[in-house]
């Protein structure tokens, strides 16, 4: 078996999600190649070559791949993927955007968000907002799957010494163009990779009150998340949303503040090791999954928490 893992990166840095995806590939077994498609992405390829368990790094360095437009990258992935038994990408927005397109070009039914490898053709994945776990077997010749990164411990970032090969294929489909982007800037750890996450919900009342959470986060080295209610109300930007339709996190500690715990939110965080809920409504569903629940007004409890840490 041979597995192609599509690297997640921003042309400068290899993202941690790639290491989790390589771990899923290791669970399948076989040679693991990593594809780095980008522009000026040499440093990313070097980083990928050092990852544990990687046999070969393929680099497609071309302006056509700079912003990883799905139209261009999917074509490349389909071209290369023909020679592999498995094609995996992390279930990030980049992976979810590109991978199904590549799968369709290969005439394959992909598997989204796998959380476990049962055998090379059988995988587990959550459906219905994580309320059901399905065991799914693929009969396609090439298995194309996106990997829920929080379900696999990352392989070591150092110690490997894979060969780096450049790929000459240039696929510019000419269908799409990058116009611009607005990225939220933060000094805190990335939400999906943070060891501690503190999230606020509708109970925060407004965006300014998130300052209370930022202060606690800075003491804990935590990332700050939010429920859909808080995002929809405009308290915080959408990339902070944790849940079925936002980010899936599984930190060591998840602190839910002023979040009721709708199933769509629980789908994004219920695999956290320890869950703390701070809510003044003692009937809130979040308490049914919380290891430690504190029934209190968050405007008293959160500042107190900050001083006690």
């Amino acid at each position: 078996m041979s597995i192609l893992v599509i690297a997640e990166h921003d042309n400068a840095e290899l993202k941690g999600a790639t290491l989790n995806t390589v771990a899923a590939a290791k669970a399948i077994g076989g040679d693991i190649d990593v594809l780095v498609a980008g522009s000026g992405c040499g440093a990313v390829a070097e980083a990928a070559a050092k990852a544990e368990g990687v046999s070969k790094v393929l680099v497609a360095d071309n302006a056509a791949y700079e912003h990883q437009l799905a139209e261009n990258v999917a074509k490349l992935v389909a071209d290369l993927g023909k020679n592999y038994s498995h094609v995996l990408a992390p279930a990030t927005t980049t992976g979810k955007n590109m991978l199904p397109r590549a799968a369709a070009l290969l005439d394959v039914q992909p598997l989204s968000d796998i959380i476990a490898v049962e055998s090379p053709d059988t995988f587990k994945r959550p459906i219905y907002a994580g309320n059901v776990i399905a065991t799914v077997q693929s009969s396609d010749a090439i298995k194309v799957a996106s990997v829920r990164t929080t379900a696999f411990d990352p392989v070591a970032a150092e110690g490997g010494s894979a060969a780096v090969e450049s790929v000459d294929i240039v696929d510019d489909a000419g269908l799409s163009q990058f116009v611009g982007e607005e990225l939220a800037k933060s000094d805190r750890p990335e939400l999906t990779a943070a060891r501690v996450v503190i999230s606020g919900g509708r109970g925060m009342q407004n965006g300014d009150n998130f300052e209370l959470l930022y202060k606690v986060a800075d003491k804990l080295g935590a990332a700050v998340g939010a429920s859909r209610a808080a995002v929809d109300a405009g308290f915080v930007p959408n990339d902070m949303q944790v849940g079925q339709t936002g980010k899936i996190v599984a930190p060591d500690l998840y602190i839910a503040v002023g979040i009721s715990g709708a199933i769509q939110h629980l789908a994004g965080m219920k695999d956290s090791k320890v869950i703390v809920a701070i809510n003044k409504d003692e009937e809130a569903p979040i308490f049914s999954v919380a290891d430690y629940g504190l029934v209190a007004d968050l405007f008293d409890a959160v500042p107190e928490l900050e001083t006690k840490l």
């Binding site: 776990i133 399905a134 065991t135 693929s138 219920k270 290891d291 629940g293 029934v295």
Partner: peptide, 24 residues
């Protein structure tokens, strides 16, 4: 269909937690 669902099951249930009295 290209894939077959072999089994569906509920996810692992979380243990019921405890309520604490205060922040301390």
């Amino acid at each position: 269909p290209r894939t077959k669902t072999l089994k569906v099951e509920p996810p692992a249930e979380r243990q019921a937690g405890i309520k604490v009295a205060d922040v301390a």
